[in-house]
Amino acid sequence: MRSELADAVDARLAARLAELRAERGWSLDDLADRSGVSRSTLSRAERAEISPTASILNRLCGVYGRTMSQLLSEVEAEPAQVVRTADQTVWEDADSGFVRRSVSPPHSGLRGELVEGRLAPGADIAYDRPPVPGLEQHIWILEGALEVTAQDVRHRLATGDCLRLRVWGPTRFRCPGPEAARYALVVVLP
């Protein structure tokens, strides 16, 4: 007897397989021609009527240009919908006066995350490059003032202001004071 967990994974896998085919604009016949898997088997797999074998998944991964590990990681368990305060990781860099709370941490099934940042008056943090080129950021000032420099342009932000940008190179965050700056940072993978 199959477990509910196995059924849920098969349902997410079926949905992901259908998404991959739709993203390419292929019909079931197109995919059958490319993969060597029968149209009926593909149809049943995309509707979660069957669980595809390792051999079938391997063929589909080859067509979609991914490893089986990549495909399976794309269908891992859904992230928790509620992230309780106690589960939000807080990291502090006492030397720079920076406190970072991971309000909605990254998850392989999601492209965005939400961070709360706090900078002490006078704090100045420079990053030489983004972790991912083209990273989308939205910086909303909740309290205080913040100077953000990106692509050699300095933006002076006050409470309520929001800066939206894609990060390609060095950035700098500076709290001019006299009070601390608290901001929400939304990070979206390209």
Rank of each mutant, 00 (worst) to 15 (best):
V148R: 01
A158G: 11
L135A: 03
A11P: 07
R16L: 13
P105N: 06
A6W: 13
D124W: 00
P178K: 12
L57Y: 05
R164Q: 15
L20V: 10
D93I: 06
G62N: 12
C175E: 05
E19W: 11
N58A: 12
R172S: 05
L31A: 03
R129N: 06
G36C: 02
L163S: 10
P121K: 03
G112T: 13
C61Q: 03
R12N: 10
G169K: 08
G169F: 12
C61F: 04
L60I: 04
R39F: 04
D33K: 05
V115T: 10
A180Y: 05
A18E: 10
L31C: 00
A54N: 09
G36H: 03
I141C: 04
A86D: 15
S73Y: 09
E46L: 03
P133R: 08
C162K: 10
R24Y: 02
V132C: 11
P176N: 00
E74M: 11
H155S: 01
S38K: 11
G144T: 08
V63Q: 05
R66D: 10
R44C: 03
V75Q: 00
E136L: 14
P178V: 10
P178C: 06
V132I: 15
P130R: 11
H107V: 06
G97I: 09
A48P: 00
V132L: 15
R21I: 04
L31T: 02
Q151R: 14
D93G: 09
A181K: 07
G117Y: 00
V187S: 08
A45C: 05
L28G: 01
A158Y: 08
S51E: 07
R39E: 07
L20S: 04
R2N: 10
E4Y: 10
L20C: 03
R101P: 09
P106T: 09
A32D: 07
D33L: 06
G62D: 11
G65H: 15
A126Y: 09
L185Q: 15
A48R: 00
G112L: 14
R44T: 04
H155Y: 14
R172H: 09
I50D: 06
R34L: 15
P130Q: 09
V153K: 15
R154A: 12
A158M: 11
V103I: 14
Q137M: 13
V82E: 14
R24P: 01
R129D: 08
S27G: 07
Q81D: 13
I50F: 10
R111I: 07
A180L: 08
C175A: 13
A48I: 00
V82T: 12
R154H: 02
I141Y: 01
D124K: 00
V99T: 15
M68F: 13
V82C: 10
R100C: 15
E49H: 05
L13G: 01
W26L: 14
Q70V: 08
E92R: 15
R111F: 07
V37H: 03
A32I: 05
Q137N: 08
L71T: 02
E46M: 03
S3E: 00
L135H: 07
E4G: 11
A48Y: 02
R172E: 11
I56E: 01
A45T: 05
G97E: 08
S73C: 05
A54P: 02
